[in-house]
Amino acid sequence: MPTVPQGGKVLVSGANGYIAMWIVKILLQQGYRVRGTMRSAEKGKFMSDYFAKLGYGEAFEFVIVQDIIKDGTFNEAVKDVDAIEHMASPVHFNPGDLQETLKPAIQGTVSMLKSTMKNGTNVKHIMITSSTAAITSLNLDLFTEPRIFSEQDWNEASPKEVEELGSKASATTIYCASKSLAERAAWDFYNEHKAQVQWDLTVINPPAVTYESSHGGTNYVAEM
Rank of each mutant, 00 (worst) to 15 (best):
M1E: 06
V12S: 01
M21D: 05
L27G: 05
L27H: 00
L28K: 06
Q30Y: 03
R33Q: 08
V34H: 06
K43L: 11
K70W: 10
A77L: 04
K79L: 00
K79I: 00
D80Q: 01
V81L: 00
A83C: 12
I84C: 03
E85Y: 14
A88C: 06
S89W: 08
S89H: 09
P90D: 04
F93W: 04
G96Q: 13
D97N: 15
Q99T: 06
T109D: 07
S115L: 03
T116Y: 03
N119M: 11
N122E: 10
V123D: 00
I128T: 08
S130D: 09
S130I: 02
T132L: 10
T136S: 15
T136G: 13
S137G: 11
D141L: 07
D141K: 13
F143E: 05
F143G: 13
R147D: 02
W154H: 14
S158D: 12
S158H: 01
L165Q: 13
L165G: 02
S167E: 14
K168L: 14
S170P: 08
T172L: 10
T173G: 06
I174F: 05
Y175I: 06
S178M: 02
A182R: 08
F189V: 00
Y190L: 00
E192V: 14
H193F: 13
Q196K: 15
V197N: 01
Q198L: 14
W199T: 06
T202I: 13
V209G: 05
S213Y: 06
G216I: 08
N219E: 03
Y220A: 07
